[in-house]
Computed example of a mutant assay.
Amino acid sequence: MIKEACVESLKEALLAEEKGANRIELCADLANDGLTPTFGLMKRTVAALKIPVMVMARPRAGDFVYSDVELVQMKVAINYAKEAGAAGIVLGLLTKENQIDVEHTKMLVEYAQPLEVTFHKAIDEMDDPVEGVRVLKTIPNIKRILSSGGKATALEGQEVIRKMIAETEGKITILVAGKVTNENVNEIQQLTGTTELHGRKIVGDLTL
Results as ranks from 00 to 15, higher is better:
44 R>S: 10
45 T>V: 12
46 V>T: 06
46 V>H: 01
49 L>V: 07
50 K>Y: 01
53 V>D: 03
55 V>K: 04
55 V>N: 06
55 V>H: 04
56 M>V: 09
57 A>N: 07
59 P>C: 14
60 R>D: 09
60 R>W: 10
60 R>A: 10
60 R>S: 09
61 A>M: 11
61 A>E: 10
61 A>T: 05
65 V>S: 11
65 V>N: 11
67 S>H: 08
67 S>M: 12
67 S>T: 15
69 V>C: 12
70 E>I: 11
70 E>Q: 14
72 V>I: 13
73 Q>N: 08
74 M>Y: 04
74 M>H: 04
74 M>D: 06
74 M>G: 06
75 K>R: 15
79 N>V: 07
81 A>Q: 00
81 A>S: 10
81 A>F: 00
84 A>Y: 00
84 A>P: 00
84 A>F: 01
85 G>R: 01
85 G>D: 02
86 A>H: 06
87 A>H: 14
87 A>V: 04
87 A>L: 12
88 G>D: 02
89 I>S: 03
90 V>C: 01
91 L>F: 08
91 L>M: 15
95 T>W: 12
95 T>Y: 14
95 T>H: 11
96 K>V: 13
97 E>L: 04
100 I>S: 03
101 D>A: 12
101 D>S: 06
101 D>V: 07
101 D>Q: 05
101 D>G: 05
101 D>W: 10
104 H>F: 15
104 H>S: 13
105 T>H: 09
109 V>P: 03
109 V>Q: 04
110 E>W: 05
110 E>K: 15
110 E>Q: 14
110 E>D: 13
111 Y>G: 04
111 Y>P: 02
112 A>K: 05
113 Q>H: 10
113 Q>A: 14
113 Q>R: 13
116 E>M: 11
116 E>F: 05
118 T>P: 05
119 F>I: 05
120 H>Q: 01
120 H>E: 00
121 K>F: 08
123 I>G: 01
124 D>G: 02
124 D>A: 01
124 D>I: 01
